[in-house]
């Protein structure tokens, strides 16, 4: 007898149960609450919260967040790809494994500890700042770690290794025969990269860009610890509205969060679509 789809037994559901409960409690319910809150006031359903979410100040926060995310994602993609290529072409396996492990650790190193690390190295009295000053190079006042450019450097600390982890499998999927075939057909090294390797890698590169973009867009702790309210980002605005330091307005914060959720969802959907492109390089 030909059996159809395999039935999942009660034992499997029991094991999966806690994960479903966890997912519902910490993913589904908060989103539903967010949706309800952002579309309602004490008087009932409304779009007024979104009207207030697009004041010049809030629009500026979105612009800053989008710019910071785009710049750090772009730099992360370019720099991470170059470093990842160096890793996958390293002759010694030990070097490859060690660098990949380092990327794994640093990709997950963010938030307040990362901000403090940058303050004590590149802050106005940081180690590197003082060492450079001792040899006659003054970073300050033309550079400030407590600014958007400082934030860009801090974000790159986790964006680069994340890109390395994302792109290494795709680089390993570039088949040696493609390079040899291109070479045999007359392509130079540059032509091989422009006409073969990069188009094949394009879905992975674009998908990784979207993930890095989402990663930066949702970052809060690093930005707040490093720059406080000096840099106007969406996540900083949401936190301020919830904490009520200047103005307590949780429904406006929910509306901002829902718009941010839309941006993040678009990134993830785009990434998933690109990840299923049939010509992408897979190891």
């Amino acid at each position: 007898m030909i059996r159809g789809r395999r039935r999942v037994g009660w034992g499997a559901w029991l094991v999966l149960g806690p994960f479903f409960v966890f997912g519902v409690a910490f993913e589904v319910l908060p989103i539903l609450t967010l949706v309800r809150s952002s579309f309602s006031t004490e008087d009932g359903w409304t779009l007024a919260n979104f009207g207030r979410a697009f004041t010049p100040m809030m629009i500026a926060s979105f612009r800053n967040s989008l710019q910071l995310s785009a710049v750090t994602a772009f730099l992360g993609v370019v720099g991470g790809t170059v470093v990842a290529y160096a890793i996958v072409t390293a002759r010694r396996r030990f070097v490859r494994d060690a660098l990949t492990a380092l990327a794994d650790v640093t990709a997950n190193f963010g938030g307040a500890p990362l901000a403090f690390a940058f303050i004590i190295t590149l802050g106005s009295t940081g180690v590197v700042t003082l060492l450079l000053k001792a040899v006659g190079v003054s970073l300050y006042p033309s550079f400030r770690i407590y600014s958007v450019s400082g934030l860009t450097i801090a974000y790159l600390y986790f964006q680069l290794p994340l890109m390395i982890l994302l792109i290494v499998p795709a680089l390993l999927g570039l088949r040696q025969e493609w390079r040899e075939a291109a070479t045999n057909l007359g392509a130079t090294r540059a032509q091989y990269w422009l006409r073969v390797a990069l188009p094949i890698l394009a879905p992975s590169l674009l998908g990784s860009f979207l993930l890095l973009f989402a990663n930066a867009f949702g970052a809060y702790a690093t930005a707040w610890t490093l720059t406080g309210p000096d840099v106007n980002l969406v996540t900083v605005q949401i936190a301020a509205l919830v904490r009520g330091e200047v103005q307590l307005d949780p429904t406006l914060a929910d509306a901002l969060a829902l718009v941010s959720l839309g941006v993040m969802t678009a990134c993830v959907v785009g990434y998933r679509w690109l990840a299923t492109r049939p010509w992408r390089a897979t190891p």
Binding site: R175, E177, W178, E180, N184, V196, I200, A202, P278
Partner: peptide, 11 residues
């Protein structure tokens, strides 16, 4: 050159 694995450019 013709390769065992065809080596056609997939894109």
């Amino acid at each position: 050159m013709v390769f065992q694995s065809y080596a056609l450019f997939p894109h």
